[in-house]
Design a protein around this nucleic acid. Structure first.
Lengths: 331, 331
DNA sequence: CTGTTAGCGCCTTCAG
DNA sequence: CTGAAGGCGCTAACAG
């Protein structure tokens, strides 16, 4: 329980006033003579002084914190994105509060207001539904960025890939293999993302003049993919390939198919979206359109704390990653 | 940018003093007459007043925050545990800062001191290595609990299952199947956990008078499991069953084996440790010794904020979950 | 039982 | 260029 060193201690040791210490620490709002600045710096080092983020907050500067709300951490993509946001926030010298909305609007809202009470400098949200509950933050003038699940109708800053385009790219790749009988597995209706990905799938099929053999919806999880397989195998004839809206779905679908003796990609091929680091390690590895979580995270933090006046939506480019699941056979 | 309402506003509306407002909010340290209390409560509700955690912190109470350090969020168990801790912290009305140490001691140490500067009420750590860097927190009298990876030699509070016992239970189950040729896959040497699980495995084997056909180490991840398979299949004769130290390893091992045409559990059986929710959904489902993340999280928070003087280590019981991977065939 | 007041540590305006 | 002083919102002694 060592005695805490405060700004006054530094001032005393440096033989100057507390204000001057603030000036050198914050590089303003006034200037300090080089000589005094040196003495202050020396005193700070000698005492091992670290300004208190809390006192600072009270006095009006930021808190050095950010709040992030995720629908869950089971999703391989969300956990990767959470990690990336945390990392990017650290780069701006900020700590991040994590909130698990559990896909529940009320919990999401509760976190938003809790973050506001704690005066976070900014809020990052992976929205739960098509509706958002960010009013408390906006009222307080706290910047908010919606990641991955933007709401095209809301006037809120957002960062994400173009989900439709990603789905189109993925589907087109499958089509390129010349497969006969392609099915679509997208997410539930609760988010715009599911619709966008479905639409991208349809665009690619339409352009190739193909008709999907089936279009399903299920959760973005492994379990969702496994369940989808149970439904697909009831079909009169099995699809030869499936576009999955998430890597986790693809994993579940593939595992369930394998368990039924259907080999992948020989008898069932897949492409999906997400492209987390895991995807390339999997057996079989996934062909997937990568959402670059690090790029998304950095763009998000920049939007939050730097170009607050940039355009509402920021699109991040994707990248097609070739694995074995689609039928290509890299290495 | 609505005007913020402070305690003084409440006092004014209630026609009383600021101190009284504090008293009713905190239920002390002094008493307040029922009538006045009612007026204050009414004023609070009317104004929608919420006390500022920040001002509160400065004045000396807690901050209403907790810091948690995880080695990564890719691990299915760690992400589940992080979720559980966050949930349990919420129950105590606290927000949690998440820090990703990325298995790096320096980052871990940096988070600890960052948390301390932000005056968190407590710190939860899944330790990176056999050594810990928690001094700054201890110096400030901030309670710390090491979860999942306790250090038996350190005088720091910890909560975890008995890893050796868990491994023993898992291995014993495998032995019960009568398999001939059992191998062990544990984690790297950097943590005590790996050694404990290895020891548990050995205990079970020894008691049955069996000799392992191989003992490997690799990371606790899916990739670690997949890699282990590559090594196992080089062996003169393939093991019939493998004890894996983590579910992720089991998943990777199984997938890699399946990719080589080895069926599971018919030709290769596994048991593992972790038992996250995912495990039972997997194809094939995993037979695994469950570390109850919710129980661990609750015990951790209780230790952090309530029975600070309880015994150093708190052991949490495990549960054997039967899946298909071991050769049992539930449903 | 209630009101007053001194900090908590720091930022920033206002005088020097 | 520098020092003094007010204020951020709240807690908890200290006087009534």
């Amino acid at each position: 329980m060592v005695k805490r060193v405060s700004r006054d201690d530094v001032a005393r040791l440096a033989g100057t006033s507390a204000a001057v210490v603030s000036y050198v620490i914050n590089g303003g709002p006034r200037n300090v003579s080089p000589e005094r600045r040196q003495r202050v710096l020396a005193a700070i080092k000698e005492l091992g002084y670290e300004p208190s983020p809390i006192a600072r907050s009270l006095a009006g500067s930021g808190t050095g914190t950010t709040g992030m709300i995720v629908p869950n951490l089971d999703s391989s993509f969300f956990s990767e994105l959470a990690t990336a946001v945390e990392e990017a926030a650290l780069q701006t010298g900020r700590l991040v509060f994590i909130g698990n909305s559990a896909e529940d609007r009320r919990r999401e809202a509760a976190y938003v207001s809790s973050f506001v009470r704690h005066r976070v400098d900014g809020v990052v949200v992976i929205g739960v539904s098509k509706q958002l509950s960010l009013q408390p933050a906006l009222d307080e003038g706290i910047p908010v960025v919606v990641v991955d699940r933007p709401n095209p109708h809301a006037l809120i800053r957002s960062v994400s890939i173009d989900h439709a385009e990603a789905a189109e790219t993925a589907t087109a790749h499958l089509i390129g293999h010349g497969y006969d009988g392609i099915a679509c597995l997208t997410g539930m209706e609760s988010t715009f993302v599911s619709d966008d990905r479905l639409e991208g799938f349809r665009r690619a099929m339409g352009r190739a003049g193909l008709e999907p053999v089936a279009t399903l919806r299920s959760p973005y999880s492994y379990a969702g993919g496994a369940t989808a397989w149970e439904r697909l195998k009831e079909l009169p004839n099995l699809p030869r390939a499936v576009f999955c809206a998430s890597d986790d779905q693809a994993r579940g679908l593939i595992a369930a198919a394998l368990a039924d003796g259907i080999s992948v990609p020989e008898r069932l091929a897949t492409v999906s979206i997400d492209g987390t680091k895991q995807a390339s390690v999997l057996k079989p590895s996934l062909t997937t359109v990568r959402q670059p979580s690090d790029v998304i995270a950095q763009a998000t933090l920049r939007r939050l704390f730097e170009d607050a006046q940039a355009e509402l939506h920021w699109g991040v480019p994707t990248e097609l990653i070739i694995g074995r699941s689609c039928g290509c056979t890299p290495d």
